[in-house]
Every structure is written in C-alpha cells, then in structure tokens.
Design a protein around this nucleic acid. Structure first.
Lengths: 240, 240
DNA sequence: CGACGATCTTGACCTAGGTCATCTTAAGGT
DNA sequence: ACCTTAAGATGACCTAGGTCAAGATCGTCG
C-alpha cells in the first residue's frame, strides 16, 4: 500500500521542475540542478481514489509524501479504538514525518477525495541532504513547522471555544488556498463535518450548530461543503 | 538571555563523555570520537535559578538546548496574552526545536527550579550532521518524536476526561524518571498545579479535585508536590 | 427512477468541568 | 517571629458543549 509504482502514464508532469506545486513543496529551497537530483529519488503515484490509504499506522516507515492534488487526512487510533484526526494535508504540503521517530508510522493517512501524492524514500532523502545542505535545512524547517502547527492546535483545543476553533480552521484553509493562488474567500471543504469535529475536539452536532450560527450572523455562506467567507474581519477576530 | 557563557567553573563534568545524561541525550547515537566533535560545539551554562528564562518567544533562534539538571517548561503566549504550557523538559531531554521553522523561538522556556542546560548552536549542529550522518539521523528522530508527543497531547486534550489527562501526565513523568534510573513510584513534581492545569487544558481547581479523588481512591499519596503512586494498574487503566 | 444508507441539521435535555468565593497552608522577606 | 503573598483545597453554583432522538438531504446503486 505505501509504495507506489514509479512512473504513471496519467501524469503530464514527470518531474518537480514542471509541477505546479514546486514553489510550495520540497524544491522550494533548491537550485535547478539540485531539483534534478531530487527528482531522481521521487516516485510519483497514480491517482488514489477517495478513502484509499497511503499508509496505515504501524506499517514500517519508508517514505514521506507530498500532496500533488486532492487532499489527505492523517489520524491516529488510540488503544480503545477511537480515532483522532491529526491533520489535513492540501496540495504542496508534506506528510508522514511522524514515522521517523519509531521507524513505523504512528498515523494512518487516507485520501479524502481523489488525490495524487509523490513518495520520497526517506533514506535517499537523508543521503541527498548530506550532499545538499540547503535540503537538510529545508527539511529541518518542515519538521519544525509541523511542531509549531501541532502546538497551535494544542493551544486551540486547550483554550478556545467551539466557535473560535471552527473560525481558526476556516482561516487556516483559506490561507492555504491563497498560498496556492486560489480564492481565500470561496472554497470547498474537502472533509466531512465529522472529520472537522474530530480534529477540533468537538461533536458533529456542535460543528453543525456553529456553521448555523455563523450563517445567521452573516459571517459565512455555507452550502454543504461549499464555503463563502462574507466577513473576514469578524472571522479573524474570533480566531484571534 | 539565550546565549550563555561557554565554560563554567561550577561544573565537574566538562564534556558529554562524562555527563550522567549521555545515554539519554544527543550523544546517544554516536561513537566515542564523534562525541568529542560534538563536545567542541556544545556550550555548558552555569546554574540557572528558578524562573529564569533560557529564551523568550520572538528572540532569534540560534541554539537548541539539553537539560542537564533541574526542569524546564516551554510555553507560548497567544495574541490575547494567555499562556499555554507546551511542554515540561527533564534531564536528558532536548528543547528549543520549535525555533527552527521561523528563525525565532515561538515558545519561551524557563527554569521551574534551579537547573542547568547545555546550549547547542544549531548552525554548528547542522554542519556536524553532514559530517556525522548518524547525528543527522538522530536529530531527525528527535524532532519526529516531538511531533508524535505533541500529537499524543492533542488526542489527550481532544478526547479525554480530566482524570484521564492527569493520570496520563503522572505516568509520563513516572516513565521519564525510570529512564533516568530514578524511582517511578515516588517523585517530586517540579511544576505547580497551575502549570499542570494549563498544560492539560484544565483549571487549577479541577486539578486539585482530581488529586483529591485519586487520594480517596488510594491511587496516589499526595503531599504537596511529592507524589507516591500506590496503584499503577488503576493509573494505567485510566490513562489507557 | 426510487430506495436505502450516510451525512447533516435541529431540538430538548444533562453533565463535566468552569467560575467565583472562602479558607488553609506554605514560603519569603524584614 | 511576624507579616505578606502565593499556592493549594474545597464548596456552591452555572454554562458550554455533549448526548440522545428525530428529521431532512444527499448520493449511490440496483
């Protein structure tokens, strides 16, 4: 499951240099000739359909992944069987770094919709990081960013109300869309209400009610998963 | 504040090879000759008294730190001024890695009691990681472990009751004491009830009540900060 | 096209833990 | 030793969000 066929006929882009995401993704910090080296170790996968796992918790860790299209969620399962969504990954973002510590993945990752990912074998990435110090540096930064993201979520869960949590998630998705040159004001949520609730430590019902209240206050227009932000100032004030 | 004088007359140990923590700390993955190289870049600080900051959020990131003795807490301050404790660091543990992503620290770190830390300039560590691949690998693992730790806390905050949270923290501290060959059953909590509550997303009152209940159920003996675990099975069952 | 299951919404009610107020105890400072 | 301040414990009360139950919508597959 976790390893994919190297080349795929469906893809028009066959390397990082041509990929629309290369300004956001791993090649970010690299020179043209270095990107070519990175390209040699990256494996591009065929499209994954909705609900397909990229890897499962407990599997041997071999690679980190980059989202090329679609969206991915990461989640852990605790001893008593309940799921905790730990992250949503959009195009240009890297996931799978939790596996490095223990040599197996601690999260499972699955496609929330049709998606494509690039697989980056970690041992080769480590070798390449020795040859290209800026790649080592970039990867340290990516991991550190994951740490600071998780710490933001910790603060959110520990200190903020349901409305503040939902507002913060919406702004996060809006900002990540802007980074990809998409609209920050109108977008489609790739995840279900249940996933949102799980991620934010709330029940589905509460998420639903918050969306309802936000609409009543003319903060949002919500049509199922389609979101339009009507009042960014108020939303930012809530998210603080 | 964040940089300390290189050598200190108070310390009997002048290098990692002699340090009691070297089996837990950075030298863990290294050969003897490699430890000597690491030693050259590490700066040992004089003892820090209680409530002294090692660094403040916003300061330029230069180094990561290892706890040699005493205990440290990390915390962030949100826009509206409230504090979120993000971690407690005991001897042998590394902290400060959140600073890598943005070139300044996002957390502040302070000594919860008299403590000593080693400062490891990050740029030198990066250089050395290129020369010593196992050091690079070890450091990737440390950062990944920080990620999985944070994700455990996310799950705890999002899904568990007050009693479960407190039980989990107590077990964590107990286990980290065992790693240091100290008693896992009797120990002194270095942090206040307020810090525990803040870290676990609870109020001081709730923490106090949980300790009370745990005593009534003969799960613990609590004398101020002095803890004795009387029933590990029940505690583990709660922490799950 | 129609029916079944999944997802979402809404309402009524309940409870874990927050808030506020009081008291006790411990720890520094002079 | 005495005073002051911070830390901790405990009780009475309140509320945000959980739980449970009922509908409403949507999407899919025969």
């Amino acid at each position: 499951m976790s390893s994919m066929d190297a080349k795929c006929p469906h893809n028009t882009e066959t390397n990082c240099g041509d990929c629309r995401m290369n300004a956001l993704c791993l090649p970010l910090a690299l020179q043209t000739n270095e990107v070519a080296q990175l390209d040699e170790i990256i494996q591009r996968g065929r499209p994954l359909q909705k609900d397909r796992h990229i890897y499962n918790a407990g599997e041997e860790f071999k690679s980190v992944f980059a989202v090329r299209s679609g969206s991915i969620k990461s989640y852990t399962v605790s001893n008593d069987g309940q799921e905790q969504v730990t992250g949503f990954h959009l195009p240009g973002e890297i996931f799978g770094m939790d596996g490095i510590a223990h040599n197996h993945y601690t999260n499972s990752a699955l496609a929330m919709e049709t998606a494509a990912v690039c697989e980056i074998p970690f041992s080769r990435l480590q070798e390449l990081s020795i040859a290209i110090p800026s790649l080592q540096n970039h990867f340290f930064q990516l991991m550190s960013k994951e740490i600071t993201n998780d710490q933001h979520l910790i603060t959110l869960l520990s200190k903020n109300s349901a409305e503040e949590r939902v507002a913060t998630l919406l702004l996060s998705i809006s900002n990540r869309n802007l980074r990809r040159k998409l609209s920050g004001a109108r977008f489609r949520l790739p995840m279900s209400r249940a996933d949102i609730g799980n991620y934010l430590g709330l029940t589905v019902e509460t998420v639903s009610r918050v969306f309802g209240r936000f609409q009543k206050q003319d903060l949002l227009k919500v049509d199922k998963k389609e979101i339009e932000v009507l009042d960014f100032d108020k939303l930012r004030a809530l998210a603080n």
